[in-house]
Amino acid sequence: MTFAAVIVANVFASCTTDTVYDTYDHTPLSGWEKNDTLSFDVPKMKQAGVYSQSLGVRMTEIFPFTSVSLIVQQTVYPSGKVVTDTIKCPITDSRGNFLGDGVSAYQYSFPIREISLNKGDSLHICVRHNMKREILPGVSDIGVKIVKR
């Protein structure tokens, strides 16, 4: 019985996570327009600390490029501090093979900068593509994940 209790305790312990935000927003699969900015409103932080962030990207095989360039603009409230990053996201290798996880739809995760937040800080995050083509086909979802370190 003791052995079983240890296994159950380990399973529950491994399920705990410090993820404070993990949300996706859809884009039109037929084409994500350059001026169509996706917005994410992260609620107030319950704890001060350093948070790692990642950008989730879901694509289909109709995506016509080997990479996608995304602009991530973050505003920290209540301070109003604005941080902008351009993230170059490799999608395929030199042979055109998709690098993401999946079969006909592919999932990617790209790191964004770590950020120090105070208790009670919230974030407004905007994501838009920075490609030469005005309408970008094949991108189905963009997401933001924030984890307390």
Rank of each mutant, 00 (worst) to 15 (best):
V11G: 07
S69M: 08
A13C: 07
V83S: 06
Q53F: 15
D41L: 04
F12T: 05
S39C: 03
D22C: 06
Y106P: 08
D121S: 07
I146K: 10
E61R: 14
F40Y: 11
T60P: 12
Q53S: 15
R133N: 10
V72Q: 01
G80A: 09
T84R: 09
A13K: 07
E134G: 09
S67Q: 15
V8H: 03
T27K: 03
S52N: 12
I71T: 13
R133K: 07
N130Q: 13
S14C: 06
F98L: 02
G56N: 02
G49P: 06
P43V: 06
A48S: 15
S14M: 04
C15E: 03
G138N: 00
S67G: 12
R133G: 05
G102N: 08
W32Q: 04
V103D: 13
Q47M: 06
K81Q: 05
K34S: 08
C126L: 02
L136E: 00
A105M: 11
V68H: 02
Y24P: 01
T86R: 12
T37P: 05
S54T: 08
L38T: 12
K34L: 08
P90R: 13
H124L: 09
D101L: 15
T86M: 13
V144R: 08
Y77K: 14
R113D: 04
V82D: 00
Q74K: 09
L55V: 03
G49E: 05
D93L: 10
M131D: 00
V139R: 00
S109C: 03
R133P: 04
D22K: 14
G102C: 06
T37N: 10
D25G: 14
S79T: 15
L99N: 06
N10A: 14
D141F: 07
V50Y: 09
V83H: 12
F40N: 08
F110A: 01
Q74A: 10
V147I: 15
T60L: 00
I112K: 08
E33L: 11
S104V: 04
A105K: 06
L136A: 01
N35G: 09
M131H: 02
N97S: 07
V127D: 03
T75H: 09
G31H: 07
H124S: 10
G120T: 05
L123S: 05
T60M: 02
F110V: 02
D41N: 12
Y24G: 01
P64T: 06
Q74E: 11
R95Y: 13
S39F: 06
I135Q: 11
